[in-house]
Design a protein around this nucleic acid. Structure first.
Lengths: 194, 194
DNA sequence: CATTCTCGAAAACGGTCGTTCTCCTACGGT
DNA sequence: ACCGTAGGAGAACGACCGTTTTCGAGAATG
């Protein structure tokens, strides 16, 4: 009879898949490596996720949700919208400093599989849209013009890839500096227009 | 007897490799697809590039050189350093608008193979360093503080990935707007400090 | 105790990939 | 005309990957 652990095994598989897919790239990781890392036998693995594609999709969806949740959890501890905007870049700095950081998992999977798999491309796009919406809400709360959102997104995205390739978390600081400048300029424009 | 075409075949191979590697990702493209696309028989292909790894390396190195050359060629037609800085983002807009644009080939290959191949990781890093140096020279020529370089790099990198995933060239315009603001702020700071 | 069922370990299968090898054609020199 | 060679087309090879199947050990059931 099936034990209590159907959910446990799913988590163990996803934990192993995330570490491997994110750390080495998706195509470089075989199902056998996930079996070994998770300790879940191949049979159960395929009972839980009927194909590698569905496992990749589940990996991306879980990471998407957790990433945005963690970001919001950090940023929302600050009081003013302006502080929350700048806190996003502090959170990026912490993320970039984590051992094993290798850039944005969605940019990476888009580059690797976006041309081959519409699903992967869609998930990456949805993830970036969600991030953009989060920033847009902060910008609106700060009474800043909507176009500031687009600029902040670029700084954050640029910081992710630059931090990944250069191997240092410093781009987060540079992005925060630039964000502060752009925020001030946006506010000044609102005042001028009034 | 060997014909005049040893260089011709190398170009044909690299042309096919670039289109396929960039368009579909490196691991998704087999040597057979490159053979078909280039029309160069497998035997000659391996005489020219003794392994797929060396072909990948040659693809990245040629793209690196041409990318920076094209950028500089466009930007350097402008007179003032400030105009040249902003022209970088105009050039990005043209690039993003090309049919088949799929983001930065170096970010993509880094995400796909950076963890597996030190060579790929090094080439991506060298490419981004070269881009940064180009911007740093423009910033210095504009008498702007050096830290402006870091901010402009983030805008450009962010625009590349955002344009790729969103599928529109608009991020280049947003990046240019932000760059103009940051440039003004940087100049203002220099004046204030004086 | 015998039987059935469950489940994990690993072999097996079909396909693909990078790379090499075979064969056949066509041409150059004598 | 003959032979030697170069070169191209594609078969072949070994490795690996995603997925399925086999097999045997052990628990549950009557």
């Amino acid at each position: 009879m099936s034990e209590v652990e159907p959910e446990r095994t799913e988590q163990r598989i996803l934990d192993a898949a995330e570490e491997l897919f994110y750390g080495r790239g998706i195509q470089s990781v075989g199902m056998d490596a996930i079996r070994t890392a998770s300790g879940v036998p191949l049979k159960r693995l395929y009972q839980t996720f009927p194909s590698k594609d569905t496992l990749v999709e589940a990996y991306l969806r879980r990471r998407d949700a957790r990433w945005l949740r963690d970001l919001a959890q950090y940023s929302d501890t600050y009081d003013s919208p302006e502080q929350r905007i700048l806190a996003v870049f502090d959170w990026l700095f912490l993320w970039f400093s984590e051992q094993g950081f290798r850039g944005c998992g969605f940019i990476n999977s888009f580059g690797e599989l976006g041309a081959t798999s519409q699903t992967v491309a869609d998930i990456a796009k949805a993830h970036k849209d969600a991030f953009r919406r989060y920033l847009a809400d902060l910008v609106a709360a700060a009474d800043a013009p909507a176009w500031l959102t687009d600029q902040l997104v670029l700084l954050a995205e640029g910081a992710m890839t630059t931090a990944a390739i250069s191997g240092t978390p410093e781009p987060a600081r540079h992005a925060k500096d630039a964000a502060r400048t752009l925020l001030r300029a946006a506010h000044a424009e609102v005042v001028t227009a009034a």
